[in-house]
């Protein structure tokens, strides 16, 4: 996963805003989105993120897998990530 170079972002109080400088679209991530986003910044692939969260939040394997996949796909569709 790679964040596109036209994306700038910041996080304040567990809220993250991503800005696409080409389209000027702004995306807000809530607390849960921000937690996954921070993992996107440090981990290499979607499986690594899912594994990390499944260990952190035991008993929610399927839900975590679905949510993270949906999250990453949405960011890909919005031109934020190259996967």
């Amino acid at each position: 996963m790679k964040i596109r170079n036209n994306i700038s972002f910041t996080t304040i109080e567990e809220n993250t805003v991503l800005v696409n400088s080409i389209t000027n679209e702004q995306i807000m991530l809530d607390e849960i989105g921000t937690e996954i986003w921070k993992l996107v910044l440090t981990m290499n692939n979607i499986e690594e993120i899912i594994n990390f969260l499944q260990i952190k939040y035991l008993g929610f394997d399927e839900k975590i897998s679905e949510d993270v996949t949906e999250f990453v796909n949405m960011l890909k569709d919005r031109g934020v990530l190259d996967v």
């Binding site: 809220n15 800005v19 809530d30 989105g33």
Partner: peptide, 26 residues
């Protein structure tokens, strides 16, 4: 997780939080 509303200026919202918290935004 992801909130997108057309024409919404989320950056301004974040800036308002920064002003309230005295966060170093710029």
């Amino acid at each position: 997780m992801i909130i997108i509303e057309k024409d919404m200026n989320y950056l301004d919202s974040l800036k308002s939080i920064a002003i309230k918290n005295r966060s170093l935004f710029q």
